[in-house]
Design a protein around this nucleic acid. Structure first.
Lengths: 341, 341
DNA sequence: CTGAAAGCGCTTACAG
DNA sequence: CTGAAAGCGCTTACAG
């Protein structure tokens, strides 16, 4: 039975010092004397003291928490990123709040409302699809320097961001398929307007050009990142007269949908066509056939994002801080790709 | 540029009433006069007032947030449940905090620490694998009535819980396979010691008995809920002399791993063996073959859990409240099952 | 290095 | 129905 929670007062009484000294000892141990430090530590233990966060937050005007904004809580792509963010934050005694952009929108709250002194000290946005208006108002606010994008970003805004090497990953994919002997390579894209879609599509076209490979317009198949779009893309591929021998999909989900639909129509991967994805989500290795993909280290993306945001929160004038981190990707070769037959 | 955030004082001044009246108007609109209500509403709009949560929390000794405890943040099974919890909470102006049990453990904090007045008002635990000791100390605490389990639970403890009809789901699965004509049915279980594992396994055995089907001991294959365990189970199945014609897996991931491994060895589902899962995760419908499964409405699980917890938080003495909710499951028939050939 | 004291922005008995 | 006043538990200049 936890009776009454001990307060600073209780600790001060037990340690025979003032509350000011207890507070100092706890937050700036180096400014008090050794003996005080010991006495206070002892009193904290004896009383079972735990800080009252509301009181501290009210006094310091800090929330000691960070808000993570997702497009969709139910998308498994984000869970590992959250794990990374959460690890980093909890280490610092910060909490992670989570909201989905849809939900924020529905509730009629504005994003800026979340950057209240006492709701969240900062914000990590994993959704590049936010309204330009919303972002503009955020950019103009005084709290703009405590907003950071991860994975996705929005061109034309000044927020710092953490992302993976989308270009290099795409180059690696195309080069790998080329090395296997493929000359007719198609690309299934992400959703129109998405920055990742453009980044990967542009890199795809550039790399095809560099390798002097022919690229028919119909070989760029419009999709989004979903399984369903992958299925549709497969139907498109099936209907083609001159079928590409390899397909590079902008996400693993697309690749899985693509392969699934193909298989329903009697085609086999990689015998009839090589297929690869992007992301290397957990399931990629277990898929049949196991998916060749471009791996993003999502744990590191999360940890890096938290790290960068916290640096900004801690530094009042952080203009000199790095405003972008681009994390490495790697090619993971599995069973869904082979030399053309 | 948001200059200074308006306080209650500012609103009071503009509305020409006391801060007490503003506070009352905002939290108990029915106790003030109509005209006051209007004046205050107007002043709130004019000043752009937003409540300072730290101040309110300090005063009311409430955190206005709920902690959700997961075994593993990176497990996609939980995301839809979180979405459901989050929807319900945000509607009430409550925030959702998230932590993983592993992380809590590593940080050396005790669970009870989270139920601080000002960290979280309640806790939803999605992990039935918590230490008995940890739970005991939680159970004895005065805050025990603000702890609730969802999906999983721990036998022998008194916490309320939200769960799905594990027994009925299992019965439906076995009956369905039986109706298809299967007489030799195996079960791949969840992890040893897990309540869901036992619940489903017991129901499986009971149903097999009821249908007067033979059940060889080796047809209960020990697994956990993972893809990898499904692969191992498939190897076990392959090595059997007298192979069951249908396999009921305790999770979709198990079923997918099972099918994947089978396919690598040249077996085909459902031609060589019918396989079904449990959960109906998003991917089940897209898997090849699309997975027959027992559907849990995870959104509803989340919403119900939040609903029940909030009822307890709001009711000082909630002993009369429902202490369990068992949510319906449904059989979803897809392509991974058929009559035995 | 330490203490007395003010004050962060709310809510809520207590009077009226 | 409304106001004056106390107080939630901290932190931090300001003195000493």
């Amino acid at each position: 039975m936890t009776s009454k929670t001990a307060t600073l007062q209780d600790v001060a009484r037990v340690a025979s010092v003032s509350t000011a000294t207890v507070s100092r000892t706890l937050s700036h141990p180096d400014v008090v004397s050794e003996s005080t430090r010991i006495r206070v530590a002892e009193a904290v233990r004896a009383t079972g003291y735990r800080i009252n966060r509301a009181a501290r937050n009210l006094r310091t005007k800090r929330a000691h928490s960070v808000l993570v904004l997702l497009p969709d809580l139910a998308n498994p792509f984000f869970s590992t990123i959250l794990e990374g963010i959460s690890r980093n934050l909890s280490q610092r005694g910060y909490s992670m709040l989570i909201a989905s952009t849809k939900q924020v929108h529905d509730s009629g709250e504005r994003l800026i409302d979340y950057l209240d002194d006492v709701r969240a000290d900062g914000m990590i946005i994993l959704d590049g699809g936010l309204d330009a208006d919303v972002l503009k108002s955020l950019e103009d606010a005084s709290q703009a320097d405590r907003v950071l994008f991860a994975c996705e970003w929005v061109d034309g805004t000044s927020f710092p961001s953490v992302r993976c090497e989308n270009r290099k990953g795409t180059q690696a994919a195309v080069t790998y398929l080329h090395d296997l002997g493929h000359r007719k390579i198609a690309h299934v894209t992400g959703p129109e307007g998405n920055v990742l879609m453009h980044s990967r599509k542009d890199a795809f076209i550039a790399e095809m050009t560099r390798l002097e490979l022919a690229l028919k317009p119909e070989w760029i198949i419009a999709g989004d990142f979903s399984l369903a779009a992958g299925c549709l893309a497969a139907q498109t591929w099936i209907a083609m007269e001159d079928r590409p021998t390899a397909v590079f999909c902008a996400s693993d989900q697309l690749a899985m949908g693509f392969i699934a639909e193909l298989s329903r129509h009697g085609f086999s991967v990689p015998d009839d066509v090589s297929v690869m994805g992007f992301d290397d989500i957990d399931l990629a290795a277990q898929f049949i056939p196991a998916l060749t993909s471009i791996r993003q280290d999502r744990l590191m993306i999360g940890e890096t994002a938290a790290e960068m945001l916290m640096a900004r929160i801690m530094t009042p004038d952080g203009d000199h801080l790095e405003s972008a981190a681009v994390l490495p990707v790697s090619l993971v070769i599995r069973e869904s790709t082979s030399s053309p037959s």
